[in-house]
């Protein structure tokens, strides 16, 4: 599983970071960044949740 954050959509709410800090991080100005190439199996459920609960629908899973 791979995951990306659309920079134009991200609102800096930090929901993904709150749900899965192992995969998501926040940049210095408070917006989400993905810090792994491949999502480890144990975090895939949290990443799916982050994608559905992202307030700005900025997260895409491929």
């Amino acid at each position: 599983m791979r995951v990306t954050v659309d920079d134009d959509r991200c609102g800096g709410h930090g929901v993904c970071f709150g749900l899965c800090p192992e995969v998501f991080d926040l940049s210095d100005d408070g917006y989400a960044v993905v810090k792994v190439d491949e999502v480890p199996p144990e975090h895939q459920e949290a990443v799916r949740k982050a994608a559905t609960q992202c307030p700005t629908y900025a997260i895409t899973i491929t």
Binding site: G11, G12, H13, V15, G18, P21, G30, T52, Q53, C54, P55
Partner: peptide
């Protein structure tokens, strides 16, 4: 730190104006 507060709510209805409020 960490500070996982819910002052803006959380999830899909997270405060739209959070960045502006901050």
């Amino acid at each position: 730190s960490p500070n996982h507060h819910v002052a803006f709510g959380f999830g899909a209805h997270f405060c739209l104006g959070a960045a502006l409020a901050r």
